[in-house]
Design a binder for these strands. Structure first.
Lengths: 161, 161
DNA sequence: TAAACTTAGTTTACATGGAAACTATTTCCA
DNA sequence: TGGAAATAGTTTCCATGTAAACTAAGTTTA
């Protein structure tokens, strides 16, 4: 039901036209909004997996780098050690990952995918790639490439990598 | 739970050269890394303010839009209502913001900066703008502009706004 | 006008993620 | 050799942020 807007006696405006000033050009603000948007899309696209972005990324990376130390994986994904412990706990409980303490350095923990984990990643590879495609949304192919390239440069991740 | 393998694992590499596969081109991953980096820089640049990014942004926006409803400010910054309540609580306790319940709609809460809050924002305006400049780091002026422009487009925030 | 509905914000209960302290192991070096 | 330092991961504790339930107020409609 659309109401005809009869202006009431608000001396102070409160439509949604908020003035952002410099904030509208703030990299931090814009990146945060983008982050929120992408995560929301991830949760829709990957809903059936019941996984969070960090968990899926971890499975992905462990699949490509089996037997690496937990801490190495954590650093590569910018996940803090304390958090990684819990995240891996969940993935172990889910049956996707196994921990092995190697005898030559019993401080460390090496992680790899279980058979189940490998199957899981295989079965969701396409879904994950498609999610990345649908992420593009408002950008043309060229703009998307440019965007990715600038992000890498900003993050000090050479486009070579 | 944790297995001890006698089989040698030292054949498995564990330098920091992790293979990212498709993840290295993942918008979500790259945006998250950028976010972490920018927040870290914010906390260094704005350390003396003792404020978090969301709190500073809120002060900034309230300064530009005094007397707007708390919910309007929350929506504009993508902050959830429940969180906004606590965030504004903190800013009220700090003496920067005041709440007013207008008689014509006593459900709503209109917020504005106190004198102290106005002074605070004035005193830190330059610092905030400079932070945005230092954010650029690895990007040329042109690349930075392009980056901002692509972020806006991605976020559906027309460059008009 | 009264009941149903909608809107605004707060409270509650919980999950996430991080810092600091801790345990266990390995390396360094006097 | 043995004590100090370094390294790897875990545990504990806390702050942050969210969903869902809730309170209060305003609007619609029969």
């Amino acid at each position: 039901m659309i109401k005809e807007k009869t202006e009431t006696l608000h001396t102070i405006p409160d439509n949604e036209s908020v003035d952002f000033g410099e904030l509208k050009n703030s990299l931090g603000f814009l990146v945060r909004i983008a982050q929120v948007k992408i995560f929301k899309e991830f949760y829709i696209a990957m809903a059936d997996t019941k996984l969070k972005p960090g968990e899926f990324s971890t499975l992905w990376i462990v699949g490509l780098n089996p037997g690496y130390r937990q801490g190495t994986i954590a650093r590569s994904l910018n996940i803090k050690p304390a958090h990684m412990t819990k995240l891996v706990d969940r993935l172990v409980r889910a049956g996707y990952i196994e921990r092995v303490v190697p005898p030559n350095d019993r401080r460390s923990v090496r992680i790899s995918l279980t058979i189940e984990g490998q199957e899981f990643v295989n079965d969701h590879r396409a879904q994950f790639i498609n999610f990345h495609i649908s992420e593009r949304e408002n950008l043309s192919d060229d703009e998307y490439k440019q965007f990715i390239s600038l992000l890498k440069k900003f993050n000090n991740l050479g486009s070579a990598q």
